[in-house]
Design a protein around this nucleic acid. Structure first.
Length: 743
DNA sequence: AAGACCGAGCTTTTT
DNA sequence: GCTCGGTCTT
């Protein structure tokens, strides 16, 4: 079965002992190598699956690897530890963090929580957040943690630098507050684990013994803390295999240390280095373009991708006058290719530099009725209604998380305001107890007066939920919270489309909780509240990509790493946008431009068969019109690889404002983008009767009011309905979005 | 205490 | 252009 591998891949698979660096170019079959290697370890080398660990960055990658390993290995695959850096650390910390003075049921703070906490701290330290931004402090702290620098070390490094000394003070307070709340932020997860290993030889030895064979994917993205974690774990047996591509290192801003991969042979002098350069994904044209771009970077490990896949089509390069036309072209191109049967929607991906660019495409797709899915942007779990409910769960689970308690104490409104909260906080500080415990003894707080009577029911409620939590499952608990707080009832009363979307999200949360319980049951583990909260804290948007559903995928270039699509559109290839203006004017512009270039390389190499590169001469950025030149990266692609017309002629300049307004209407109605499952109306229009109205009927629209249906035409995958509204006149709209009701 | 109103800042990327 | 957060009003 190893005959399926090329010679270099075989070498990588068979080299099981000692440190190994696999330099795997884009699309060179590294996942295959890792899974075969795992199989080889178990079947040929007799290694116990229990002693193997594979670490990735995203849950999606971990899931895929787990799946492919179980196909490969069969028996015993489930005892291999395959997971992300963050969840690995959480699993370890849940068992042992008490040795560092935390409770094992700590909560995990996301960036919203961090900011709230930071705000608090700045207030307490009397720092004016108009001058010194919370984000700046948090970034400084995050970088420090990436480098394993604790507040003491930070302070030492700040000597003579007043600004840095202030940051050190904030850092110290911030850590103290986290500890008081029994909470960790994302960076702490890694750093505390390293700290634990350093502080406790017994624990370290246990995990070193357990993880005798360690594999790390996307190694070029590890930061110093992650490197130290891996190095420490592997130091006993030295069986460390890392896979990465320095050309795809795109997370420097997040602390990724490219020297982890460039200097691997220095860290592990007896390391074996294996290069995988044969590409199985793309056409030679695409690879030539990618090589043409990346070769302009210095300080990289020399590699040249090649393939046996054949030349393939040229790259379609198009420049437009405006970003609207760009979106329009891509939408039409996708439609054309889908209707010709060349591709399904899900074979197409639009990649861009910034999330903000997604909006134009979204508007265009809504109007054209093209199903799409945007990855990134506002995370499901960051939405208000979801966070509110999760904070109820957090409060029930961990009474020491003051942040969570404060968030929900007046949601829904209980008539408890800022003044009351401040008085409770003062009391809590004075008596050195948690916020929640101060609430429990509200009668004792003399300054409160009558407000104490409003607090009592809240405390009673949490207490009762706490005892229920022992018996109820997470989903039942959620339902109970919703029921008793009247959260959904309140939303129903609002009776707006936005409120409905929120309710849908809440339903989705309940299903996710139920799904969590099911999975736990299957695995024979107890479904704990903490477990659910933890899972929820560590999911990224990219994890929700579902390959079974047919939609065009829109995402940033960063999110696209590790994925591949038959048809890729690189949109907004303009100097100032990509490479970003920030990188062009940066102090270390040369280094930043190299990072941008790697990002371009990642983008190009996502394409399997077809690549289109587009840009616009003019686009709106932050309400201002910008005029941009074609990206320098496009110019680095050999000209003969490009085809496509530079669009000069103005094809039917339809009144953009009108369609724009139309799209906006639809937006207002559906503020959260696509539903989780694309609506039926996308694929199969069904018959006109399913609309529930016909020509001549009186209908009501949520924005336009009442009107008379003039015409219903089947247009592609949906019905186009023309309605004469009493107030606003004749409008054409798609049935699936208009949500017309017969009156 | 709760809702309305207005101005600032944002947009590089996120586990 | 839009969103968030702060202030002002009731």
């Amino acid at each position: 079965m190893y005959e399926k591998l090329n010679n270099m891949q075989k070498e990588a698979v068979f080299q099981t002992e000692g440190p190994v660096l696999i330099l795997a170019g884009a699309g060179s079959g590294k996942t295959r190598v890792l899974t075969y290697r795992t199989g080889y370890l178990i079947e040929e080398k007799g290694v116990n699956p229990y002693n193997i660990m594979a670490i990735t960055f995203t849950n999606k990658a971990a899931g895929e690897m787990r799946e492919r390993i179980s196909e490969q290995v069969g028996y015993g695959a489930e005892s291999i530890w395959v997971s992300t850096f963050h969840s690995t650390c959480v699993r370890i910390l849940r068992r042992h963090i008490d040795r560092l003075g935390f409770d094992n049921n700590f909560t995990i703070y996301d960036s919203d929580d961090q900011k709230t906490l930071m705000k608090d701290i700045c207030k307490r330290l009397e720092i004016d957040t108009k001058i010194y931004k919370e984000r700046t402090f948090l970034n400084a702290i995050s970088s420090a943690k990436d480098e394993l620098m604790d507040p003491v070390a930070f302070e030492l490094s700040a000597v003579g630098d007043y600004n840095r000394q202030r940051q050190a003070k904030v850092y110290r307070e911030y850590q103290a507050a986290l500890k008081k709340n029994n909470a960790l932020d994302f960076d702490d997860l890694i750093m505390k684990t390293v700290e634990l290993f350093r502080a406790d030889a017994e624990v370290l030895d246990y995990y070193q013994e357990r993880f005798r064979y360690i594999m790390v994917d996307e190694y070029q993205d590890t930061n110093t803390a992650q490197f130290e974690l891996i190095r420490t774990l592997a130091s006993k047996y030295q069986n460390l295999c890392v896979v990465g591509d320095d050309d795809q290192s795109i997370y420097k801003f997040r602390g990724a240390n490219i020297y982890n991969i460039l200097n691997f042979e220095k860290h592990f002098p007896n390391a074996r280095v294996i290069k995988l350069e044969q590409n199985y994904r793309s056409t030679q044209t695409i690879l030539d373009a990618a090589n043409g771009v990346i070769k302009n970077n210095e300080g990289r490990k020399e590699k040249a991708l090649w393939t046996e896949n054949g030349t393939g089509d040229k790259i379609d390069f198009e420049q437009f006058d405006t970003a609207y036309e760009e979106a329009d072209y891509i939408a039409k191109d996708i439609r054309k290719k889908v209707e010709a049967g060349d591709y399904q929607y899900k074979d197409c991906a639009i990649l861009y530099r910034t999330n903000a660019q997604s909006r134009l495409f979204e508007e265009r797709f809504v109007i054209s009725g093209i199903p799409y899915k945007i990855v990134g942007g506002v995370n499901f779990y960051a939405r208000k209604e979801i966070k509110d409910l999760l904070c109820y769960l957090k409060t029930i689970d961990n009474a020491r998380d003051d942040l969570a308690v404060r968030r929900i104490i007046n949601v829904p409104k209980r008539g408890i305001g800022a003044t009351t909260l401040n008085r409770v906080q003062e009391y809590a500080d004075a008596h050195d107890i948690s916020f929640y415990n101060a609430l429990r003894g509200a009668e004792e707080i003399t300054t409160l007066g009558r407000a104490a009577s409003k607090i009592k029911p809240f405390v009673m409620f949490i207490q009762s939920m706490r005892s229920k939590a022992e018996i109820l499952g997470v989903s039942e608990l959620l339902r109970d919270i919703i029921e008793q707080t009247g959260y959904v009832t309140e939303l129903e009363a609002e009776d707006t489309e936005e409120a409905k979307a929120r309710i849908e999200n809440i339903d989705e949360l309940i299903s996710k909780a139920a799904a969590y319980e099911d999975v736990c049951e299957e695995n024979g583990e107890p479904a704990s509240l903490s477990g659910f909260l933890e899972e929820v804290a560590l999911v990224a948007d990219i994890d929700s990509l579902d390959e079974d559903q047919d939609y065009v995928i829109l995402m940033t270039l960063h999110s696209a790493k590790g994925l591949e699509f038959p048809q890729v559109y690189l949109a907004g290839m303009e100097d100032g946008l990509f490479p970003s203006y920030m990188s062009i004017v940066a102090d270390d512009a040369a280094a930043e431009l190299e990072e941008e270039r790697r990002l371009a390389y990642v983008g190009i190499t996502r394409a399997k068969q077809n690549l289109a590169i587009t840009c616009a001469k003019q686009r709106m950025v932050r309400g201002e019109t910008q005029y941009n030149k074609v990206s320098r990266f496009v110019k680095e692609i050999p000209r003969e690889l490009l085809s496509g017309a530079v669009r000069k002629e103005k094809e039917h300049k339809e009144p953009k404002a009108a369609t724009y307004q139309q799209a906006k209407q639809i937006f207002r109605a559906k503020p959260y983008g696509m539903p989780q499952k694309p609506e039926k109306s996308f694929g199969t229009p069904g018959n006109p009767a399913s609309l529930g109205y016909q020509e001549g009927d009186r209908v009501r629209h949520m924005k336009f009011g009442e009107g008379t249906v003039q015409n219903i035409v089947q247009g592609g995958r949906d019905y186009e309905v023309t309605v004469d509204f009493d107030k606003v006149g004749v409008k054409k709209m798609f049935a699936s979005f208009a949500k017309l009701k017969k009156v």
